[in-house]
Structure formats: structure tokens, C-alpha cells
Computed example of a mutant assay.
Amino acid sequence: MASLNVYSALVVLFLTCAAPMATKENDQIIKENNSETKMGLPYVLEAFTSLFETGSISNECCGELVGLGKVCHSALVKRTLENPLVKDLCPATIIAKSIQKWNNCLALIDSPSPSA
């Protein structure tokens, strides 16, 4: 239950533009692409849990993630890694996981569904 509170706090920080430690480049990408409003909160929580803790991403969340776009996804992950709340995490590991999740979702969304 405590981890849900931590991840809820991360999501709130993720959704706010007021992160003073965020790089200008990531903030600009996020703002120009309306990145913070493209995914529903339940999918943001699911994606963040899978990146910063453990777990998989549902097909629906993959659709939302791919709809967000790779540029937005990367900028949001990088900006979140600049937050002091995640300072103990290895950025290289999180970025590698985010790329893997992105590629898995893209492959899932791009693959034709079996005929009925």
C-alpha cells in the first residue's frame, strides 16, 4: 500500500510542469506535444509501475503509450529521472526498461490480430 502512495506521488510530480530540475529541452518537448494530457491517469500509473517497480503493461495501456508517441514517452521518462524522489534508481536501467516497454508495446500494437 505504501508503494502505491509513492507511485501516486510520482505520477502527480510527473503530471506537473513545475519540476524546477527538469531540462528545458524535455519541458519544451512535453509542452509542444501536450504530452501530459495524452494518457489517462490509470494508464500513467500502470506504465510508471512497470518502469519504476515491476510489472507488465496491458494491451490497453500499450495502445495509450504508443498513442502518446515515442518523443513524449522519452521526454517524460527523462524528466521524471531528474526528480529527487527517484535519485536512488539507476537512470540507465530505467531508460533501458522504457525502451524495452516501448518496443514491446509498438510490436503488440503493430502486429495483426488473429482472425476470428
Rank of each mutant, 00 (worst) to 15 (best):
E36C: 14
M39L: 15
M39Y: 10
G40L: 12
L41T: 14
P42W: 10
P42V: 09
Y43V: 04
Y43P: 05
V44R: 11
V44E: 10
V44T: 08
V44H: 07
L45A: 14
E46Q: 12
A47E: 02
A47N: 03
F48E: 07
F48D: 01
T49D: 08
S50G: 03
S50T: 05
S50H: 01
L51E: 05
L51D: 03
F52L: 15
E53H: 14
G55K: 01
S56M: 02
I57H: 05
I57C: 10
N59F: 14
E60D: 13
E60F: 10
C62P: 13
C62H: 05
G63A: 07
E64N: 01
V66D: 06
V66K: 11
G67Q: 04
G67I: 02
G69N: 06
G69E: 06
G69R: 01
K70S: 09
K70A: 10
K70P: 02
V71M: 12
C72V: 01
H73T: 07
H73M: 04
H73K: 03
S74D: 15
S74P: 00
S74Q: 15
L76W: 03
V77P: 01
V77Y: 11
K78M: 04
K78L: 14
K78W: 02
R79K: 13
R79Y: 05
T80D: 09
T80P: 08
T80V: 09
L81S: 00
E82M: 12
P84L: 08
L85W: 04
V86L: 15
V86W: 03
K87Y: 14
K87Q: 13
C90L: 09
P91M: 07
T93E: 14
I94D: 00
I95H: 03
A96T: 10
K97R: 15
K97M: 09
K97F: 11
S98F: 08
S98I: 04
S98A: 11
Q100K: 14
K101R: 13
W102M: 06
W102K: 06
W102C: 06
N103C: 08
N104M: 12
N104W: 02
N104F: 06
L106W: 11
L106D: 10
A107F: 04
P112H: 12
P112S: 12
S113T: 13
S113G: 07
S113E: 14
S113A: 12
